[in-house]
Design a protein around this nucleic acid. Structure first.
Lengths: 342, 342
DNA sequence: CTGAAAGCGCTTACAG
DNA sequence: CTGAAAGCGCTTACAG
């Protein structure tokens, strides 16, 4: 094979003009059946594939959607590493994108400039953003004229975009209610920085509401915070909780990963889950069923979330429909072995 | 903001020709310092970003690398879902790519045609392929003139490409040797289809060698196979192993995921790890440390593997160096709680 | 050191 | 129903 054949080669082979080849490729205008056949044959013979770079340039449409993943500030490191959540999400996006003839680009985000640069230079048709970024980014984003879907955001300025989220508040509520119904009164709440994470704050609101409904006074002392969502952070906060020497029997967590890390720490201190502590995760990652004890958790369908986000985005791209929508997905309590009745 | 500024706008603003702007952008030829400054200022003022689609088209280089991930044949489903391995790998690739000014596209693979189409149409500069595909694909690939890195392949026709793999045979050897040194004699080997997976076959060879060195006769009855690598498949094969009623005390596995699923099944049947069965995983996913019992495993650095693959690929792209290289990464035994001395 | 012009591979009014 | 021509936003010999 020498050079990649171009539309001119096909045209020559078929004895027509490049324009005509383009017409049959795009199924546009009425091309007579016979010329169509001839062109199709030529394409077949030459094993011709249209060059999307050129197509993008002249159509001003790239059929490319981008996913921006947050990375931890000071580590120049990895995008997905250690985060089982991104995994499933990206997977959902890719599936829908592929089925709808879009390709998927991913990027971690260093500084904001780099990020905007990324969007601009590739002429991405649509963008999905996971995680929170400074408000200034969203302002910049607004000036770029492409559909954008934000995942799990609650800030005001966030309403200017499409949104996919889950009912976080209800998730927090369900988790706390479950423990309360099992007889727990001293329940800790474990989150990443509550001030920084609106998602965690929502969950905490639900948590608080359940306590209040049960006549339990929420206490700031029972809130524990971590830097990030990793097993290690979970283990750390677990030790912290144990050495705080408070009377705690139940733990609500904003992530399965954190919960799993905590269970490990608890066991290493000679305590048991659920004998000494009942603990509830969040997400329902596939690992939850397979650890011991298996993890009671608030399920959200992350894979589906990715699919919805991609579908929403492609719809917006194709319809040029610019009204922003928010999709809220349901959550569900999955009871397993990590919680028990007091 | 109206339309995206083009190179002409910058040229006009700076009072020079588009060619000159291009020269300063590409740092090519000697442009006088003052015109350079003027151009840079214009770029700044207009907030100009070069359009990579156009750049790609005229340079015939996309600065794009693709990652092809295998998907299970009959599920149209997800790329990464359930597979913690891809996670870390892609993460490594993305990191290196971004640092070296490349963007990363991912795709699952449906049929082969779709796949070739994908490569051709986007003018990808280089490709990383995870997993095995029919030989015909590799033949096609050879005719496309871009550097390709294959991950974990052993087939002959695979030598025509760059390769990154780990010392699988030694991994299998280490795992078996560890159990043998702990006094185990009846050791099962759990893999996905041995006939289909060259990686698993290599590991089995190492496994076999260790047994032989210890004077133990390998037995086909102690080989167990799964369809895929999921927790669920692990649990299934665990039950199978238990109900086979063979005298087994040690288990070597080709994946942590499988091992974790097996442990669950073993526990559910009222047996214990490592009391009744010692089990060794493969990969050393971050979860290994946090399950109970924590998992003894053969560590490979998957994140690093992704980085190496990306580096190798970008090197090949940039140097037009067409000699194919194979990188073999080391493996390491990590002893934790899932194995014990008999 | 700088610019005019052709070209990358396609698409799309426009004319016939 | 089909084609000539201009254009998408860049780059790059070539000439000066």
């Amino acid at each position: 094979m020498n050079k990649k054949p171009t539309i001119r080669d096909v045209a020559k082979q078929a004895g027509v003009s490049p324009a005509t080849v383009s017409y049959v490729l795009n199924d546009v205008k009425k091309v007579s059946d016979k010329t169509k056949t001839v062109v199709l044959e030529a394409i077949e013979q030459l094993n011709y594939y249209p060059d999307f770079t050129a197509v993008s340039l002249s159509k001003k449409k790239s059929n490319l959607i981008g996913i921006m993943l947050p990375i931890i500030e000071d580590s120049p490191a990895s995008v997905f590493k250690n985060n089982l959540y991104y995994n499933e999400f990206v997977s959902g996006v890719e599936l829908v994108a592929r089925n709808r003839k879009f390709d998927t680009m991913i990027t971690g985000v260093g500084d904001l400039d780099e990020c905007k640069n990324w969007i601009m230079k590739r002429n991405i048709d649509g963008l999905i953003i996971l995680g929170m970024f400074p408000e200034s980014l969203y302002n910049e984003l607004k000036s770029i004229n492409i559909p954008i879907a934000l995942i799990d955001t609650y800030e005001d300025y966030t309403n200017l975009f499409n949104n996919v989220k889950v009912n976080d508040k209800y998730g927090g509520y369900l988790a706390a209610k479950h423990l309360i119904e099992l007889g727990h009164r001293n329940i800790a709440f474990v989150a990443t920085n509550l001030l920084m994470s609106p998602v965690d704050r929502k969950r905490y609101q639900g948590f608080e509401q359940a306590l209040k409904e049960a006549g339990i006074q929420p206490s700031k002392d029972l809130i524990f915070e971590t830097l990030d969502i990793t097993f290690e952070d979970g283990a750390k906060v677990g030790q912290e909780l144990l050495s705080s020497n408070q009377e705690i029997t139940g733990i609500v967590t904003v992530s399965d990963v954190l919960a799993i890390g905590m269970i490990k720490a608890i066991q290493q201190e000679g305590k048991q889950v659920p004998a000494d502590y009942s603990i509830v995760g969040f997400d329902d990652l596939s690992i939850c069923k397979y650890i011991t004890p298996s993890l009671t958790t608030i399920r959200q369908d992350i894979f589906e979330k990715g699919k919805l986000a991609a579908d929403q985005l492609v719809n917006a791209i194709e319809s040029l429909n610019s009204e922003q929508k928010t999709i809220e997905m349901p959550v569900e309590l999955i009871v397993r072995e990590s919680t028990r009745s007091l």
